[in-house]
Design a binder for these strands. Structure first.
Lengths: 140, 140
DNA sequence: TTTCTTGCAAATTTTTTGCAACTTA
DNA sequence: TAAGTTGCAAAAAATTTGCAAGAAA
């Protein structure tokens, strides 16, 4: 993703295009896998971005729907670009390896569920991840 | 759930039926909502179960498939009885309120996804939660 | 009695807050 | 310049570890 695109995105959200945000978003755009605060600190150690800044960036970009949280059942919080083509993850419970998949019928499903619900009025997002064994871990 | 049932479950898993485990599982059986370590410590404060014990109980019961982890996008880890009728959650992003739903086609879906996968051999579990607004928060 | 569990203290790890200095628009 | 951001230090919260004492099978 071009820096210009990222700047526009931030702008539209009313967020300033600071070096930290640009670097973090560029990293998310380059890597197509969920990243934790620590992952980012390590990958951008040359840029020396404070962990606090990374956490605050997560918070502001999540609120702006630029990043989205991904549940990997790990210790730390993971995020991903929100605008990538809609997809979810197969997660290996043994080695943590991740594969994306796009097949996701959940838009329909969630409308059905919402209709049946007595307490909910709207659904804005969903978590959908599959946990299992990758070929190499299953072989062991 | 009767204590006898719980004892059997633990037994079958090769785990000892200690007071802490019995109390924790009884609580999970009574409340039908996901609970964090803290929730349990508070609910069972009369029993004075150490937080460390609760975390260790989570670990052993999760491994034994007696408890399962639930992703609520909160700060702490939440668990639930694993054997309850299969269900998932609508989670209000505003107030945290939870409603269960049972409609879940994911068994089929995950087989389809697995077939298409190049790296995965088996899927043993899935996370599927919907995030949105409950009626009362949507009204605000 | 043997093995598994617990509690306590202490350490780690993850995430958040306060505040002054500094950038971006 | 005004509003939003960052880094640093410190705190808070969540989770884990070591070890000796205690309980279950």
């Amino acid at each position: 993703m071009k820096e210009e695109t990222i700047r526009k995105k931030l702008n539209k959200a009313g967020l300033k295009a600071t070096p930290a945000r640009l670097a973090i978003l560029a990293l998310f755009a380059k890597r197509h896998t969920p990243l934790s605060a620590d992952d980012i600190a390590i990958a951008l150690k040359k840029e020396k971005i404070d962990l606090v800044t990374i956490y605050r960036t997560f918070a502001s970009l999540e609120k702006a729907f630029i990043l989205k949280r991904v549940d990997l059942r790990r210790d730390a919080a993971y995020f991903e670009m929100a605008d990538n083509h809609h997809h979810h993850h197969l997660v290996c419970t043994e080695c943590g390896d991740i594969e994306d998949f796009e097949l996701c019928d959940i838009g329909n499903l969630s409308q059905k569920i919402l209709k049946k619900s007595s307490k909910f009025k709207a659904v804005s997002d969903h978590a959908f991840e599959l946990f299992g064994l990758c070929t190499s871990c299953a072989g062991k």
